[in-house]
Every structure is written in structure tokens, then in C-alpha cells.
């Protein structure tokens, strides 16, 4: 009297529990993405609703890939992210190491560090727009009062300076993600390997390079993975600080999408660009998530 198999509801339970989450994501993200893909294959303009049904193949993609403005925004976005994230990582690591050294008031410092993370990007943008305003901004006022310069520096008007200011705002906003997670990594770091390395004759740089840093990498990848979910927040910064100006010199992929799609109402073309930006973000997240999983496995082996 042996029954071949007892199947229980428990095997369905995890899927049922996940159903609302998956359904929401499919409805609010996947479905629109499919719609967006279709739109990118049409000459759709908001002003001419019927154009949604003209299939024109890859024309939009061919057009944007042949468009220098697009490439400029694309490359600027890549450069911007590369610089911003590397600086954030380096600064975040520095801050984490610093705070790890401090024995008193660590908690308070950590809390303060979290604040920029919780700021609305639009607020960060506004804040730096306010600080960097050439007439009334506190930065110029301070520089002039101190006699370091006698004329107003056009922080948000000059193309190079504007890009610098935007990057600065981004770094200010996002460094704490790295600092906090790397600090958590330092707190979690076991003493034994450090002491073993010291006994083995490593100097402090070698200890850092061969013990501390590898241990911190999974934490860095968590930070990168979290950060990668939100890279497009830079849109908010630019939208409020320069709106892509002057003369499109701070245009990023995301602001370009908004301009082409909403201001010029060329939805077909904008969706093609949006797809490129989506793929960029997804690849970025995917890459760091994979790194995280790999690092985790490697850490698991050490435990």
C-alpha cells in the first residue's frame, strides 16, 4: 500500500505568494515595454494618433543610430556614469575606512551619511542649482567675499562647468550608498584573517589590498547593484539644474528621450531611444547582480 507520490499544496505556495508581485511587474512594466517596443517600430506622434498603426520596421533605430545628437548624449551618459560611479566608489571607500577608524560617534555619523540617500533627486538638483546660481548662489558669494574671484563663475551656464556641477550633485547624492554598505562590510569583517596576515608579515597596505578589499567586494557589488537600479535618477538632476542646456551640452540619454518624446511629440523615435536606455540600465544591473552572486558564492566558501 505505498502511494507513488504525495503532492501537496506546499509546492504551489511559493508561486501563489509571488503571484501579486509578478503580476504587478508584468502589468506595469513588461506590458508597457512590449507596447514601447511596438511604438518604436512605428512613426507614432502624439499629435497624429493613427500613426501608431504604421509599421515601419527599424527605421527609427536606423535614424537614431545615424543621429549625432543621439550619440553625443549616449556617450556623455556613459562618461558621466563612469566618472560618477568610480568617484562614488572611491569616496565611499575612503569614508567607510575613515569612519571605521573612529571609535566615538560612529552611529551618528552613519545616520548623517544616510541622509543624502533619502533626498529626492529633484531636491538635490534644486539644492545645487541654488548653491551654484551665478548671481545669488552661496558658492559664488563665498568665493567673491573671500576675494578668490571677482566675477561670477557661470557654474550652470558654461557647458563644462555645468557637467561638472551635475556630476558633483550626483556624487553628493549617491556616495553614501557605497559608504554605508562598505562600512557595513568593515563592521562584519572577521578579525582573524587580518591578524593572520599581520603575523604573516603583511604591511598595512598589503593587508588592505589582499584581505580587506576582497572581503569588501561583495558589499561593493551590493552597492553597485542597488545603485544600478537608479542610474536614471540623474534625469531628475539634469531636468531641474540645466534641462540639458546650454545648447544641449548637458543632454543625457534620458533628457533626450523626454525632449524627443514629450516636447517634440515624436513618440516612435523617443521609444527607440528609450529602449536603448532601458537595455543599458538592464545590462548594468544584470552585470553587477551576476558579480554579486559570484562574490557571494566565493564568500560562502570561506565561511
Amino acid at each position: 500500500m505505498i502511494r507513488a507520490l504525495t503532492t501537496r499544496r506546499t509546492e504551489l505556495a511559493p508561486f501563489l505568494l509571488l503571484l501579486p508581485a509578478v503580476a504587478t511587474m508584468l502589468f506595469v512594466v513588461a506590458l508597457p515595454l512590449i507596447f514601447s517596443l511596438w511604438t518604436s517600430l512605428t512613426p507614432y506622434k502624439l499629435t497624429k494618433p493613427n500613426t501608431l498603426y504604421d509599421f515601419i520596421g527599424l527605421t527609427n533605430y536606423i535614424r537614431i543610430f545615424g543621429d549625432w545628437d543621439f550619440w553625443e548624449a549616449f556617450l556623455r551618459t556613459i562618461a558621466f556614469l563612469t566618472v560618477a560611479i568610480n568617484v562614488e566608489f572611491a569616496l565611499g571607500l575612503g569614508i567607510a575606512l575613515l569612519i571605521n577608524k573612529i571609535t566615538w560617534g560612529q552611529r551618528g555619523l552613519r545616520t548623517i551619511m544616510m541622509f543624502p540617500m533619502m533626498f529626492s533627486p529633484i531636491l538635490v538638483g534644486f539644492q545645487f542649482k541654488f548653491l551654484f546660481n551665478d548671481h545669488i548662489g552661496v558658492v559664488n558669494n563665498a568665493l567673491q567675499s573671500l576675494g578668490l574671484t571677482d566675477q561670477a563663475i557661470p557654474w550652470l551656464v558654461d557647458a563644462k562647468l555645468a557637467m561638472f556641477s551635475i556630476t558633483l550633485a550626483e556624487v553628493w547624492m549617491s556616495t553614501s550608498v557605497f559608504a554605508i554598505l562598505l562600512l557595513a562590510g568593515l563592521f562584519a569583517m572577521p578579525r582573524d584573517p587580518l591578524e593572520a596576515a599581520k603575523v604573516d608579515g603583511c604591511n598595512s597596505w598589503q593587508v588592505f589590498r589582499h584581505i580587506t578589499l576582497p572581503f569588501l567586494m561583495p558589499f561593493a557589488y551590493i552597492a553597485m547593484a542597488i545603485r544600478s537600479l537608479d542610474v536614471a535618477r540623474a534625469y531628475d538632476l539634469v531636468a531641474v539644474m540645466t534641462d540639458g542646456g546650454p545648447a544641449g551640452r548637458t543632454e543625457l540619454l534620458w533628457t533626450l528621450v523626454a525632449r524627443v518624446g514629450y516636447d517634440e511629440a515624436k513618440m516612435g523615435q523617443a521609444n527607440a531611444m528609450a529602449y536603448v536606455s532601458t537595455i543599458l540600465s538592464v545590462l548594468f544591473t544584470w552585470y553587477f547582480y551576476r558579480k554579486l552572486v559570484a562574490a557571494r558564492r566565493y564568500m560562502g566558501g570561506a565561511e
Partner: peptide
């Protein structure tokens, strides 16, 4: 843990399910 096959009895009663 679900029982894949066979029977478990406690006090004579089959408790598989």
C-alpha cells in the same frame, strides 16, 4: 518534510498528510 513515498504511522494512524 513532505513524504515522497511510503507510510508513516503514529499510534496506528497514518500521518502522511
Amino acid at each position: 518534510e513532505d513524504i515522497t513515498g511510503g507510510l508513516v504511522r503514529i499510534g496506528g494512524q497514518v500521518v502522511n498528510d
